[in-house]
């Protein structure tokens, strides 16, 4: 299944990806990461691996987009 995998400790919780995802696959969780931000989380169900979240995200390594086989994340 397609999925955007978010590296929890690299996310600054800016919500730009959440707001940009055309299929509303992303949300901000309640947990706080190492940097002190509530970070974004993804669900795979409706993801088309379009890459929009990757491009709007200002952090170089926070988002990796998988098409097909994605690693299992919580």
């Amino acid at each position: 299944m397609n999925r955007s995998v978010i590296e929890a400790d690299l996310c600054k919780g800016c919500r730009v990806c959440v707001n940009s995802c055309p299929n509303h696959c992303l949300s901000i969780g309640s947990e706080i990461n190492r940097l002190g931000y509530q970070y974004a989380r993804s669900t795979p169900e409706k993801c088309t691996a379009c890459g929009i979240c990757f491009y709007v995200c200002p952090e170089p390594g926070a988002i990796t987009v998988y098409k097909g086989e994605a690693p299992d994340v919580k």
Binding site: A49, Y55, T64, V65, K67, E69
Partner: peptide, 8 residues
């Protein structure tokens, strides 16, 4: 398959 990741 990775389609988008941190650029090299």
């Amino acid at each position: 398959m990775i389609v988008k990741e941190k650029p090299k």
